[in-house]
Amino acid sequence: MPIEDYRAAATTISDFLKLLTTTGGLRLKYRITAGEGAADPDGLEAREIYVEIAGPDAGLVTQRNGELLRALEHVAAKMVRLEPEEHDRISFDSGNFKAMRAREMKMAADAAAERVRRSGAPYSFQPMSSRERRMLHLAFRQFDDLETESSGEGLRRFVVVYRKGDKHVPPAAAPSFQRGGRGGRDSRGGGRGPGRRNDRRGGGRGDRRGPGGPRR
């Protein structure tokens, strides 16, 4: 379903956020932009509705690698009845969190490119969200000698970098993409559910190798 009516979508999102600030008691301010004004100047996001979050509780939104930011984005996209492949049309951000993540991603891409060229072996990033994987794929387009693909299922899906033509080589386990230092703590609030709730858990630092064997 295309976003045919930005106004209706913006109203739905605004009602959602109002609910969070009134009933939910979260002290947030927000600005919703729809249509051309929402476009990402860096071209990294295909967004058509842009929601900027500020206010005293904005820190909650970006903690744990932006977990709440992604949760709000997802629920908002569902409320607007976007199909999964259309979710990128709605983007939430707070304090330039995503732009900073994009920059980190770019640096990680450059480092990985260097490494694959040097070693010739494929390089696997840590699992990340579909939006972040997309940013990585885009970042690698600048390198003619390398290509990327996503591997793994669901929350464990991650990007693998190959030398061009090497795609038949199984990816080596090298979970070396380290998240930024901000808000990386893993203390959980409420919620239940067996394991795997945090898709960033268990990552190695820097160059540390994973427990071995190709990740599938």
């Binding site: 992604r70 629920v75 569902k78 609030g189 559910g193």
Partner: peptide
């Protein structure tokens, strides 16, 4: 994913 997102929102409200 949707119920997980709702839990994340609920956890933030619970913090308050």
């Amino acid at each position: 994913r949707t119920v997980r997102s709702m839990r994340t929102i609920l956890a933030a409200v619970g913090q308050g």
